[in-house]
Amino acid sequence: MTYSTVLPIWNAIRERFHKTANALPEQDLSLQLGTTSIGSLLHHTAEVEYMFAQWFFGKAMPEDGIPKPALTNKDELVEFLEASNERILQAMKELPEENWHKSMESPIGASTPLEAVGRLMYHTGIHAGQISLIQKNGNTVE
């Protein structure tokens, strides 16, 4: 029940974020405010999904580690986002129903897998807003 309940909400948020990433002009990936670039936000979003899949859903990291796409290559970043989404979706699907509400310790504190999905949704939304802000106010740093 939990996976089937969470899935439509997750998909709505994640598909919107993916659409945003796909629509970005590649030159915008290097726009930044302070030390944060749009490319780094896309990478970070996917990286966190890999970490949450491990921490809260027991999905082991890939044997060769988390991919490291170029932060200025849109195709690589979009592919990385697709892979991280597939990984977290698979991890959620494989989690037994009785474990969705069990608190787990992680490097960011205790949380249930259900709470972790909520945190991921919030995290994605925050970075979507930052991307929009950087597009409006960011600078290209050579």
Rank of each mutant, 00 (worst) to 15 (best):
P69R: 01
G125L: 09
S111G: 06
E115S: 13
K59I: 09
F57P: 02
A23D: 15
M61L: 15
I134V: 05
G118Q: 15
L24C: 02
A23E: 15
Y3G: 14
K93C: 00
A60Q: 00
L89Y: 08
F17M: 00
N22H: 12
H44L: 12
H43E: 09
K59L: 11
Q135S: 07
S106P: 00
E26C: 01
L42N: 03
G65S: 06
Q130C: 14
G138N: 09
A83Q: 11
S132H: 14
F17W: 14
L42Q: 00
K102M: 12
Q130V: 04
Q130I: 09
E86D: 10
P62A: 06
E94M: 09
I108A: 00
V117F: 08
N11G: 01
I13E: 09
Y122F: 11
A70R: 12
G109I: 08
A128T: 11
K19M: 08
Q90K: 08
F80E: 03
A46N: 04
G109N: 08
K74W: 03
T35K: 10
S84K: 04
G125V: 05
H18C: 01
I134L: 07
I9P: 05
E98N: 04
E97M: 06
I126E: 02
L71W: 08
D64M: 10
F17L: 07
N85C: 11
Q32P: 04
K59W: 05
T45Y: 04
G118M: 13
A60V: 05
V48Y: 10
Y50E: 08
V78E: 02
K19T: 14
A70C: 07
S84M: 05
T35A: 12
V48K: 06
F80M: 01
M92C: 11
E115G: 12
P25M: 03
T112H: 13
L133Q: 15
M121G: 11
L24R: 08
L114R: 13
R14V: 07
H101I: 10
S37A: 08
D64Y: 03
E94S: 10
T20S: 09
I9D: 04
N85L: 00
E142M: 10
L24E: 06
